[in-house]
Design a binder for these strands. Structure first.
Length: 248
DNA sequence: AAACATTTCAACCGCGTCGTG
DNA sequence: TCACGACGCGGTTGAAATGTT
């Protein structure tokens, strides 16, 4: 058989965590580490499922978490990374020490999306909204013209058909190249990061190619997290109590 | 001061992947 | 190889906080 079930959900507590629960979870993890999330709530004396404990620890209780709002520099880095990685929040978060995927995702959905929209950039495609609309119109026109061409081509010879189709493809490729270079120029002006977007479109592109040249690669690599020898070496309960004041 | 609207973000849900027996 | 279950991830929800009228 496979592994044992994570938890039976009957009788388990849900919703906002209390200070007491946080205290129990932090004490347990700092003293024992995490072998298996399924066992954590039982051993820590919590009426929560392992999944809930994991989430609480990762998103809120980890001692290495940064507190406070994301800086504009961090925001810009998120935007850059999102342009390459899309909604892969955990991948994006791995480029920031002390920030969680949930935090970045929330920040993206509540603030960055709006900021990009205000700047006239589509947050999904990272294209200029105006150009995106143009591009969509062009695509419709292109499809229509292709349909027309196809109707005409039916009566043409096979070789004529191939020529028309190749021309339409070439035209479309040129359009995409124009749109891409315009967008890259606009994006570079907006964020001024020296972002080498051209490389994004090359087959050999890697994330290392795209980073700001003034930033070392190490800045983009998440520091390995929380290896604990003892509770006292990492966090004191005085500092934890300060965190706890958030709830009062 | 109260009522209502909007924003924020912690927590949950469901799914895909991977490990185990 | 298969079935089962833990884990991790991304999308979504809803309560609390904040802003506006």
């Amino acid at each position: 058989m496979g592994r044992q079930p994570c938890c039976d959900k009957v009788g388990l507590k849900r919703g906002t965590w209390t200070i007491e629960e946080d205290h129990k979870l932090v004490t347990f993890i700092l003293n024992n580490g995490i072998q298996c999330w399924r066992m954590v709530p039982k051993l820590a004396g919590l009426l929560r499922c392992g999944k809930s404990c994991r989430l609480r620890w990762i998103n809120y209780l980890r001692p290495d978490l940064k507190r406070g709002a994301l800086s504009e520099k961090e925001e810009n880095k998120i935007i850059e990374l999102h342009a390459h990685l899309g909604n892969r929040w955990s991948k994006i978060a791995s480029h920031f020490s002390g920030r969680t995927d949930n935090e970045i995702k929330n920040h993206w959905n509540t603030r960055i999306k709006k900021r990009l929209n205000l700047l006239g950039i589509d947050p999904v495609t990272h294209k200029s909204i105006e150009q995106k609309e143009k591009s969509e119109t062009k695509n419709v026109e292109l499809n229509n013209s292709q349909n027309e061409q196809e109707n005409i081509v039916i009566s043409r010879s096979e070789s004529d058909h191939q020529t028309a189709s190749a021309e339409a493809k070439e035209e479309r490729i040129n359009e995409v190249i124009d749109e891409t270079s315009n967008f890259i120029n606009n994006y570079d002006i907006l964020f001024g990061a020296g972002l080498n977007m051209v490389n994004c479109y090359s087959p050999s592109f890697s994330l290392e190619d795209s980073v700001n040249p003034s930033t070392s690669i190490q800045d983009y690599v998440a520091i390995p997290q929380w290896y604990f020898d003892s509770v006292d070496s990492v966090i004191s309960w005085n500092s934890f109590n300060q965190l706890g004041s958030k709830y009062v």
